[in-house]
C-alpha cells in the first residue's frame, strides 16, 4: 500500500520533470538516467530484501572497521 503511494508521488514528480528533460543535452540525460536507475534498483533490492544497508550504515561499517568496532547485523 505505502509503496503504491510512494510510487504515485514520484510518478507525478517525474511527469513534472519530463517536459524539461526533453530539452536537456546528452550529458544531463545520462546523469539523470544513472541516478534514476540507481534509485529504482536500490528500491527493488530493498523490496526483495536483497540489501538492508543504507549509505549511513555503510559509513558506520567503514568507520567501525577502521576504529575496530564490529556491529551485530541485527543492530541496524
Amino acid at each position: 500500500m505505502n509503496y503504491l503511494f510512494v510510487l504515485v508521488v514520484f510518478t507525478l514528480l517525474f511527469l513534472m520533470d519530463f517536459k524539461e528533460l526533453q530539452q536537456a543535452n546528452l550529458n544531463e540525460k545520462i546523469v539523470y538516467g544513472i541516478l534514476l536507475l540507481a534509485a529504482l534498483t536500490y528500491a527493488m533490492f530493498f523490496e526483495a530484501r536483497f540489501t538492508t544497508n543504507s549509505i549511513v550504515t555503510v559509513i558506520a561499517r567503514i568507520v567501525g572497521l577502521i576504529r575496530g568496532i564490529s556491529l551485530p547485523p541485527q543492530f541496524y
Binding site: 503511494f5 508521488v9 507525478l12 513534472m16 517536459k19
Partner: peptide, 17 residues
C-alpha cells in the same frame, strides 16, 4: 498538465490524513 499534477499532489497531502 502541471496544474492537474499540482492539484493531485495537494489532494494526496490532504487526504492521507
Amino acid at each position: 498538465m502541471s496544474r492537474t499534477i499540482r492539484l493531485l499532489l495537494l489532494l494526496i497531502l490532504i487526504l492521507t490524513g
